[in-house]
């Protein structure tokens, strides 16, 4: 029986509600208003100006950042799903049951180092004088070091490293929820391994894949650290441009407009995948 003493109920909920409104809803509303403000030199005029959005649509380096972010995020999401699915399937179906927990724990373990250090660690591997180049030169496969760091390849590698782990966990959880009877029934009816996967397992795990992919998209498109450490300054992503606007130029309106575009993109992807999303089951 729930109590309908509304006064007490509000008393319990209000502090959390106050915090969320004061430090999340209000700042986002101010940020939205800021994106329509106008910055002339040092003076800011509030109002409904579309200048910032016009700038986004016309300035090449801003348009480029939106495009770069989208390309990187889509590549990372696709590659991570394709690599993680077999890994999750192998752990779920090939590894003996009592080892599965250990294998998953071992897969998560390296991600317990600091978040900034994780990108730095990839720099150790990919740098000009780093592990890969030195090893390849030592083996006589190459004579000149390859340019691996400060490229889009490095950014994508850093991201994929993290998201393969995340997606392996979500897809593994999904595969384990499936009753083995589905697989056995398909096999009994004469389907081979591939057909069973294509027509039975894959469709049943689609909600889990979409949820994981959505999570990857959201976390990847908003990340500043990985592209900044690994990608360098050759091409900037949206979060990098936002930080440039905040730092060097103190152009809060333009940064806000970019943030609004980023939120808009996440909302669009959410609406497109809402049909399959099971956020509550992650």
């Amino acid at each position: 029986m729930k109590s309908d003493n509304v006064k007490w109920g509000w008393g319990f909920v209000t502090p959390a509600l106050f915090w969320t409104i004061a430090f999340f809803v209000v700042p986002l509303a101010v940020m939205a208003a800021m994106s329509f403000a106008n910055l002339e030199g040092r003076s800011l005029t509030w109002g409904f100006h579309l200048d910032n959005y016009e700038e986004l649509a016309t300035r090449t380096y801003l348009k480029r950042a939106v495009l770069v972010s989208l390309e990187i995020t889509l590549t990372v999401t696709l590659v991570s799903v394709v690599l993680a699915y077999p890994l999750a399937a192998i752990i779920a179906f090939r590894v003996p049951l009592r080892w599965q927990r250990i294998v998953l724990l071992l897969a998560i373990l390296p991600f317990w180092t600091s978040y900034v250090v994780r990108s730095y660690a990839w720099l150790l591997v990919l740098a000009r004088e780093g592990l890969i180049n030195q090893t390849l030169i030592e083996l006589g496969i190459i004579t000149e070091p390859l340019t691996l760091a400060n490229t889009r390849f490095a950014t994508v590698t850093g991201f994929v490293h993290f998201f393969v782990m995340l997606l392996t966990l979500t897809i593994y959880a999904n595969l384990k929820q499936l009753s083995p009877n589905y697989r056995l029934a398909a096999m009994d009816l004469g389907a081979n391994t591939f057909q069973t996967f294509r027509h039975v397992i894959m469709p049943l795990t689609l909600p889990g894949i979409v949820t994981g992919a959505f999570l990857t998209f959201v976390l990847c498109i908003g990340d500043y650290v990985t592209p900044h450490i690994l990608g360098g300054n050759n091409e900037l992503t949206m979060p990098q441009v936002i930080m440039v606007q905040l730092g060097r130029r103190a152009d809060f309106p333009l940064a806000s407009a970019l943030a609004m575009v980023m939120m808009g993109m996440v909302t669009l992807v959410y609406l497109a995948s809402a049909r399959w999303l099971r956020i509550d089951r992650v």
């Binding site: 700042p27 986002l28 940020m31 959201v218 908003g222 806000s256």
Partner: peptide, 26 residues
Amino acid sequence: IRALLIAPLTVSYLIVGLGLLIVLTR
């Protein structure tokens, strides 16, 4: 109320920080 309390999860940390930074400096 439940949706409102969960909402910050769907916004990237950069944007949460940016919003707070704007309000605090204003």
